[in-house]
Design a protein around this nucleic acid. Sequence first.
DNA 1: CCTACCGATCGGTAGG
DNA 2: CCTACCGATCGGTAGG
Lengths: 222, 222
Amino acid sequence: MNAVPLKRARGRPKKTESEKDDGNRRQALIAAAGYLFKTQGFDATSTREIARRVGMQAGSPFYHFNNKQDLLMAVIVEGLQQAIASQHMALLLAQEVEPDMTERQRLGVLIRHHLDVLLGPHSDFIGVMLYEARSLTPAHRLRVNELSDAYEAAWIPVLEQLSQQGQLAAPVKAARLLIFGALNWTVQWFDMPQSGVRAKDTQRLGLDELADAAIQLFLKPV
Amino acid sequence: MNAVPLKRARGRPKKTESEKDDGNRRQALIAAAGYLFKTQGFDATSTREIARRVGMQAGSPFYHFNNKQDLLMAVIVEGLQQAIASQHMALLLAQEVEPDMTERQRLGVLIRHHLDVLLGPHSDFIGVMLYEARSLTPAHRLRVNELSDAYEAAWIPVLEQLSQQGQLAAPVKAARLLIFGALNWTVQWFDMPQSGVRAKDTQRLGLDELADAAIQLFLKPV
DNA sequence: CCTACCGATCGGTAGG
DNA sequence: CCTACCGATCGGTAGG
């Protein structure tokens, strides 16, 4: 009823707020690093630039990460974990909409989701992994491979069934590697419809059309 | 008939020899840079390291190239020109061996040659282009695109005919981009049979098998 | 998280 | 092509 409690509420509850801030700042660093690593490359991005982007001083990122490599690792792990989770969700949701999904449709869902992770507006993370994994230490690379395997695990039974149905003609392992290559490479040439001007090139592919083209290219007729 | 002419021949015919050396040293720098750029990346490779690799002092590469970017450009142009030439040769040679080549066979030749350029023992150059083109200036990138177009030109009529024959189901442009992606990505996972130990993983793909798998994956049955 | 700082390295140059 | 060198920048740290 008087000003005292209000004043107290405006005070600085040190521990709690600093811990919350900690997590926020760390996430901010990961997001900034992800964007810069993706657009400029790991080596071409300085920790100073990352710091500036989140309003920190030059040395401050090293309060949150031991070194630049750990920051790269955090970006990649964050991206892979999100991708694994959203891939799982995409499959569940599709199953709900279409309970009798064919394996061909299931592959379509996986491809469409993968393109979204690679090219969609929200994730700079996977693109970083694809092209900067070289800069990881061997120990970190092991952990990344584990997560990558978890991500690819959803694809293997689908491809194997399609192979048994005669819709996939190449050896399954080679097919999987080639298909991932075709999809991962899209980050090199696919230009998203920017939020700004739409140029004269009206014939631009959408993610849906691209996913359809991939299915048509890879699979034999039913 | 006397020693004089011999002595003269042993002298130092300045201009000629220095020019020849010039070319040799320049080529040596391109080769060294190609290898290092490919294995470590452009940004992670110092000009000093390139110089050391060919027995030069730290500043000497800049006698041959204005700056590091020009050296990268030379590596890429060299690689693309070789690839265009050898692709042409591969087509001619195949045509000679098999005069009534089908379009399917022709695509097989193109794919097999492309894999050789990417993964074969002699070329560090194309791999560099694929993953370091980002570091080029816009002007240089234009020139690279010209050469890339020349390289891809051989593929387009083949893909279009296959499309008309019903062996290629996806839109031709999307198919071309996806196919190049699948092939270009192989540099990320394909490990050449090294000149040394052959590990327990005996089931290793050869370039021929890989090319066959690609054809099976991309094309419909005749 | 900031201030202040360090050693190392880098691309590039002048002058021969 | 070498010698000798420069300014700039970088990742990272100590100490608060």
